[in-house]
Structure formats: structure tokens, C-alpha cells
């Protein structure tokens, strides 16, 4: 019995981590600067490639994770400066342009580095509990996701940069009037979102083979999380919508089949969309704020 409960908790946590990490970078960029990056999957792929190339060059795996974040983050800043910057007045066009970018990235990597890179060995082994065995590495992914969110929370709410970012998000003109260099803030925000994609790519690199379409499997789940999470509060949105989707799909995948789990996930997304079209975060954001105000917390 212990084993079954542990197993369900484990599966749920692994599911949640996958959904949250797939979406986090995308939703930060959407929430903060209202851009949907269709090349998000390719940014994740770049993170995985950075990690794989460094590991094969002899760098220890755990050291490659921050390096992948920095590399993809810088690439994101560059992308914002060269491409995204042009589209703040027509955001649908940004969506199309980033699709072009995604074709270039996946096909470019294919042409330069070939159809695949050798895999990255998964660190740690497994452990047994109640008749089931579990992967240690997978078990720490939810913790990684939580740490990434905590770091984002600290950045947004506890630093001057974070305040400037939120100010820019809520009212760019006012922020500019108050002396915030919003153009710089946009670049940084896009870089932060990209770095999160890099993190996702790096930590999932050991779980699969490294191919140019590495990012494709993250795209659909990431979009679903974003749609029902909403961009109002990126962290709250990601956490709650990933939680909700994992709650729906885990038992279905476990008891029926993976296909049932997938269909359940999509049905849930459609229903939520009809009931809460602005996403979880929009409806949760205000109550949270009033709660905090009641408790005398400074927002």
C-alpha cells in the first residue's frame, strides 16, 4: 500500500515538474512582455545541446546546467535585440517571426551538428520503496522546478530589477516616466525566460537522445499550461495550472492508459478555458493580493 501511494505521489511530482519546467520560460516572457515565443522548444533544444556538448568535452554535468542557462539566456538577449524588439506594436507578427526562427534553429543545428549527439549519462541511480523502484534523478526534478520558481519569485519581488520589471509589465509609459529603462528591461526579461528554457533543456538532456527536434515534445504541454495558467502572474499561473493538469492526467495515465491521460489533459484544458478564459492566475492573483494585504504584508 505504501508503495502504491509513493508511486502515485512520485508520478504526480514527475508530471508536474515536466509541465512546469516546459512552460516556465514561455510564461515568464508572455506574462512580462506579452510575446509568445514559438521558438521556445528550440531554445530548450539549445540548452540540451549546450549541456551535451560540454559533457562530451569533459565538463561535469552539474556544472553544465548554469552554463547552459547563461548560454541560452545570452542567445535570448541577442534574439530580443535583433528580432523581438521590432514587434512590440504587433505581437501576432512576433509569433510568426519566432516560428521562422524555430525552423532556422532546428534545421541549422541539424546541418551543423548532424542528426544526433551521443546521449548524456543520467546521474545517480535509483532507489526502492514498497516494492517499486524509482529514479533518483527524476525525483529531484520537481525540486529543481520549485527552486527555479523560488529564484524567480526572489528576482521579481525582492530585487530592484524585479520591481522595474513588474512596473514595465503593468504600465510601460509610467515606468519610463519614472526613469526605468524599459527597453533594457525587455531584453533582460526575454533573456531570463530564455535562460529558463535553457535550464529545462539542460536538466532533461540526460533523459532522452539529443536530436534537433528535442524541443518538440515540450511545445504542446507548455502551450496548454500557458493557456490555462494565464500570464497575469507567471509563477502562480505555472504552478497552479501544472498542478491542476498533473492532478487530472496522472491517475488516468496510471489506471487507464497514457492516451487516456493525454485526452483527459486536453479536455480539462478546454473546460477550464471556457470557465476561466483568462487563466488561473488572473482569478487567483487578486484574492492572493487581498489575502496578503489582510495579513499586513507589503506587496
Amino acid at each position: 500500500m505504501d508503495g502504491i501511494i509513493a508511486n502515485i505521489v512520485y508520478q504526480f511530482a514527475v508530471n508536474w515538474a515536466f509541465l512546469a519546467l516546459a512552460a516556465l520560460g514561455l510564461i515568464v516572457i508572455l506574462g512580462m512582455i506579452d510575446i509568445i515565443n514559438l521558438a521556445h522548444g528550440e531554445f530548450i533544444m539549445l540548452g540540451a545541446y549546450t549541456t551535451a556538448l560540454l559533457v562530451h568535452a569533459g565538463v561535469p554535468f552539474f556544472l553544465t546546467i548554469p552554463l547552459a542557462m547563461v548560454a541560452v539566456g545570452l542567445f535570448g538577449v541577442l534574439t530580443e535585440r535583433l528580432i523581438i524588439r521590432r514587434f512590440y506594436d504587433n505581437k501576432l507578427i512576433a509569433l510568426v517571426a519566432t516560428f521562422g526562427l524555430s525552423l532556422i534553429l532546428s534545421q541549422g543545428v541539424f546541418l551543423i551538428l548532424g542528426p544526433f549527439l551521443p546521449a548524456v549519462r543520467m546521474p545517480f541511480g535509483g532507489f526502492k520503496y514498497g516494492g517499486y523502484s524509482f529514479s533518483t534523478y527524476y525525483s529531484i526534478l520537481p525540486i529543481v522546478a520549485l527552486c527555479a520558481m523560488a529564484a524567480m519569485w526572489l528576482l521579481f519581488y525582492k530585487t530592484r530589477l524585479g520591481i522595474e520589471m513588474r512596473a514595465t509589465m503593468q504600465n510601460p509609459e509610467m515606468a519610463r516616466a519614472l526613469g526605468v529603462r524599459t527597453s533594457r528591461i525587455y531584453a533582460i526579461t526575454f533573456g531570463v525566460g530564455s535562460a529558463l528554457a535553457g535550464l529545462t533543456g539542460a536538466v532533461y538532456a540526460p533523459t532522452t537522445s539529443i536530436v534537433p527536434l528535442f524541443g518538440a515534445e515540450f511545445i504542446a504541454p507548455a502551450f496548454i499550461v500557458v493557456v490555462i495558467g494565464g500570464g497575469m502572474d507567471p509563477l502562480l499561473g505555472t504552478a497552479t495550472s501544472a498542478f491542476f493538469l498533473a492532478v487530472v492526467s496522472t491517475p488516468l495515465s496510471y489506471t487507464v492508459s497514457d492516451f487516456a491521460g493525454r485526452i483527459g489533459l486536453l479536455t480539462a484544458a478546454l473546460v477550464i478555458m471556457r470557465i476561466l478564459p483568462k487563466g488561473f492566475s488572473y482569478y487567483l492573483h487578486r484574492p492572493m493580493r487581498s489575502l496578503r494585504a489582510l495579513a499586513g504584508m507589503r506587496m
Binding site: I83, R86, F87, I93, V96, A97, F99, G100, L101, S102, L103, I104, Q107, G108, L111
Partner: peptide, 14 residues
């Protein structure tokens, strides 16, 4: 071909 299609799209949009 896919690379060039991507580039064409990106450059047009820019």
C-alpha cells in the same frame, strides 16, 4: 530548403 524557408519568413516579418 527548410532553413531557407525559415529565413525567408523571419526576414519578411522583420
Amino acid at each position: 530548403s527548410l532553413l531557407l524557408m525559415g529565413a525567408l519568413l523571419l526576414l519578411t516579418m522583420m
